[in-house]
Design a protein around this nucleic acid. Sequence first.
DNA 1: TACCGCTTAGAAAGCGCTTGCTACCGCCGC
DNA 2: GCGGCGGTAGCAAGCGCTTTCTAAGCGGTA
Lengths: 354, 354
Amino acid sequence: MTVTLADVAARARVSPATVSRVLNGNYPVAASTRERVLRAVDELDYVLNGPASSLAAATSDLVGILVNDIADPFFGIMAGAAQTEISGQEGSGRAGGEKLAVVCNTGGSPERELTYLTLLQRQRAAAVVLTGGALEDPDHIAAMAAKLAKLADAGTRVVLCGRPPLPGSEAVVAALAFDNRGGGRRLTEHLLALGHRRIGYVAGPPERTTTRHRLESHRAALAAAGIDEDQSHVTVHGPYARRSGYDATLELLRRDPDLTAIVAANDTVALGACAALRDQGLRIPEDISVAGFDDLPFSVDAVPALTTVRLPLHEAGARAGRLAMGNEAPPPGGIATIGAELMARASTAPPRKG
Amino acid sequence: MTVTLADVAARARVSPATVSRVLNGNYPVAASTRERVLRAVDELDYVLNGPASSLAAATSDLVGILVNDIADPFFGIMAGAAQTEISGQEGSGRAGGEKLAVVCNTGGSPERELTYLTLLQRQRAAAVVLTGGALEDPDHIAAMAAKLAKLADAGTRVVLCGRPPLPGSEAVVAALAFDNRGGGRRLTEHLLALGHRRIGYVAGPPERTTTRHRLESHRAALAAAGIDEDQSHVTVHGPYARRSGYDATLELLRRDPDLTAIVAANDTVALGACAALRDQGLRIPEDISVAGFDDLPFSVDAVPALTTVRLPLHEAGARAGRLAMGNEAPPPGGIATIGAELMARASTAPPRKG
DNA sequence: TACCGCTTAGAAAGCGCTTGCTACCGCCGC
DNA sequence: GCGGCGGTAGCAAGCGCTTTCTAAGCGGTA
């Protein structure tokens, strides 16, 4: 019922081998023959059998992009950029060397992360791009390192994007990490420069690298400014979600009503924080300043516009895509840190005198 | 080098057939044998060869979800819900009947849409979910219908989610369409009830069904209220992007400074519109009302909170996922319309007396 | 005891493609 | 005029798995 290579071969009166070579274009075929084959392909509306092809050639055109939360533009932007870079290979006519770039949503679950990796391993994926902060659980790190090593062994190119390098894993083609520490430090320094001293912090889930890096750099900046009291009572952890920002902010206000600024783990959380503050009748930034992280597209449209740290998500994703395709030389040592730029906007201002 | 079924069979001292049957669990195998096999699998760290398996069984565990823009939460939410429903199959131990649910980003390009479909066809995908509004170009519709028919022929289950049914295509398992018309009508009626008569409209790209349905229902509501002047000079088209909302709003203001309300094609565009209005020194909703569409998560946090139309994106995505897996009966006729609910919030108010 | 049927395992034939090797053809150069 | 060579095409052997068909072993029944 379905058309096979052999059918095409019969129609073009050549051998299956020749058809295969025309389709793959990696072996000389006379122009006249090629044309005859191509015509047969068109007439029969032939579609290559991917599994058969992958099996015989021991390679696949699947490229997986893993994200923590597909509904979050933070990941969407990176994934989209990577996917464009990977799929956009050749504008040249026939769907030849086309890669099938697909994104897989782990939902932040370590098990699903591993499961997806196994599934991609099954498919003998050509490459895998892992985005977003990693879990700090040692077991999971070990499992991931082992898995990635196995993937690399099987010829899959592994790229990390916006994720710190895996300790001891040379399996990876390249790791592009965001400078969360530098960005976090600059953000807090900005607040300090404005005169803030009592700063609440709405952190992400404690077990994520991103959370820790951002939080640690915040505290380091405070310490460097001579603020060395224990910060734990003005820190609340929660998921990277709007709701979490809302709830955490109410909690912080309860713990210390004299806070003059709130730093959020990311922009989404910051938006929740703003909502909570407004609901408490506080004005931003007159009564209290708010800052986020990531500079997602909506942040500039918040009212007031959100002070945040810009991460070049698009650029990083695109670069990861190119690395995955082997279209760009890996950075020295396979590790690159991507800058994070402070975007000082209207949501932060000097604290009220008093 | 890589471990194959035969290696496992040798180690467990059974035939390859038996190992296959243990792994697929669709044939009786004695408990003791099964255990021996499973142990061998573990010890050798065996990973099934997907392509080989797909080739032999003539089926695959790939499920594709096509989206127009992965960086847009509108799609992210649907895709995430669908993916969860598809992957979340069996919590039961071993990675057995696991489906590989992946999302493919077409970027709104018809060619890439078709390309992805071909790629999925190659892989003999188990199912395909198409999300988001369709292009109205007759050629593309015909090409899509043909492609989907071929996919269905090859056993791939096709589900449309948030996309109008394809004319004459019985290839499709089910089509879940949003009630864009009903939502659009209610939104405009809300504005009319508030007393607005001069309403600007920032529409999406003219060639998309979503755009047309929303715009037509808006105009129909106006006409029903006796406002039957030509609306074209207070309508501006543009992509579904923040920037487009900003620019279009400035243009509308230029064309008619007396507009008392602006309706945007979706929430993202509405945010851009708000920014433009603010930059012009206009207050929302005192000077001018603004409404969006979709009710994305950030809309409630806008200042003022955005009046919009809620689309149950998560629910629709989940349902599409279930339909794709055959875990839910298709609606009668294969077509279901999903309600759209007006969310009247602070960004709309009666126009200033004037 | 002989027969039957049930349960469980193995043998082997592909699934549709790729690719190393061989074979053929026409032409050049000596 | 003949050996050789570059350029093309075909043969056939798998790639690693699934699945049909066959067979072996076992207990139960007549």
